[in-house]
Design a protein around this nucleic acid. Structure first.
Lengths: 204, 204
DNA sequence: GATTTCATGTAACTTGTTACATGATTGT
DNA sequence: ACAATCATGTAACAAGTTACATGAAATC
């Protein structure tokens, strides 16, 4: 049914096997904007991206090595005296092309995973009290995420930008995420209120 | 604050290493409600859970084997003549206890991953036209998910239920998911409108 | 004196995805 | 004839997580 084209003509330097490699492309996207070290990348994740994608240091550093091996980024060691040396990476021409290809590629419809909803789904199998605990701590989590977005906006959102066109879409993503968090918060708060009323009411 | 009871008396048959094992618990939760085969479980995912958690057949069948080996579920083969035989699993006492433990356990704050937002974030590095394509197909995807929820509600939402208490939380999860999808849809549609206007307008 | 920040990584493991494999029956 | 439904799996690989390791400088 499905022909085996991938084994034929391609020299496959990029080793595009299966898998989506989203992290690789995010990192290429970040390095396109400016050269960075693994440490810088991790920080950018925390500041701006963590709410819809994140990666640990280990993944970041191994991915940087892979990208380098694949010829998509160049490395340069910045010697520092009173700090550990930095390894700063920048996109190569091939890297730019890969990134541009990915940006134009369709996003497949993929499910998101949400452990909170998964657990809530089964809360009928335990008690309302347990459900209430989960809902309350989820509310705290949502509020914390919203506060973090506010903080990031104040701290990093309004300073002069190298590439103003980038900012527009970054703001859109923020707007999206914020709307989604607020919608979730509203449902959560309503559910908490209902449960509290039921648990406090002199039961029938 | 939180005592470390788990390290004391437990002989840890369940081999709780690292990892969250969310899929295992979801499957325990499903089997608590009624005995099911791997096939049934897959269908339940598609119908009711896929929008915030999903798993392929391969993962489902291997997880069933693991749960069985761990003594959390029992297996029974139902011989069928005009169909392949079914292997129906049901929770053991140990399985019920595991599930109950998980339900009471806190949900850690974990990031969600969203490839659409990740790509959108970098759309300033390509053209508005490309971004518009992504936004439009995301809109279609959201509408499809909302339509699927409607379909599931009509098809499976209103028939008599074995355990009515379960339903309440399942409806809450649905309400949550629906609110979140709608909030995303609104932002998406606004962004599409803005972009369309800009691209059609005789530029300044 | 303790903690945080800067800075880079390795090893071991778990989880998730894709592709492949099989095969009868029922509906269009 | 063709596709879909029922039904269960294996193998190979990619991606993600946790734990561990190091070590100087700055801040509290």
């Amino acid at each position: 049914m499905r022909e085996q084209l991938e084994t034929l003509t391609e020299g496959n330097e990029t080793s595009e096997g299966s898998g989506r490699n989203t992290l690789r492309y995010i990192m290429l996207g970040l390095l396109w904007a400016r050269p960075m070290s693994g440490y810088d990348i991790k920080q950018t994740f925390e500041r701006a991206i963590a709410s819809y994608w994140n990666a640990g240091n280990s993944q970041i550093y191994t991915t940087l090595k892979n990208l380098h091996k694949a010829g998509l980024i160049d490395a340069e060691i910045i010697v520092q005296t009173s700090r550990p040396n930095r390894k700063v990476y920048r996109l190569t021409r091939a890297g730019e092309e890969e990134l541009s290809r990915w940006l134009q590629e369709d996003v497949p419809e993929r499910f998101t995973k949400d452990e909170f909803l998964a657990k809530l789904f089964f809360c009928g199998e335990t008690s309302d009290e347990v459900a209430l605990v989960h809902l309350r701590s989820h509310r705290e989590s949502l509020l914390k995420q919203l506060a973090h977005m506010d903080w990031a906006r104040r701290e990093y959102g309004s300073r002069p930008v190298r590439r103003p066109h980038l900012l527009e879409y970054q703001l859109l993503v923020r707007e999206y995420k914020e709307a989604v968090l607020k919608a979730g918060l509203e449902v959560t708060e309503n559910a908490i209120a209902r449960l509290e009323q039921r648990l406090n009411a002199p039961s029938s």
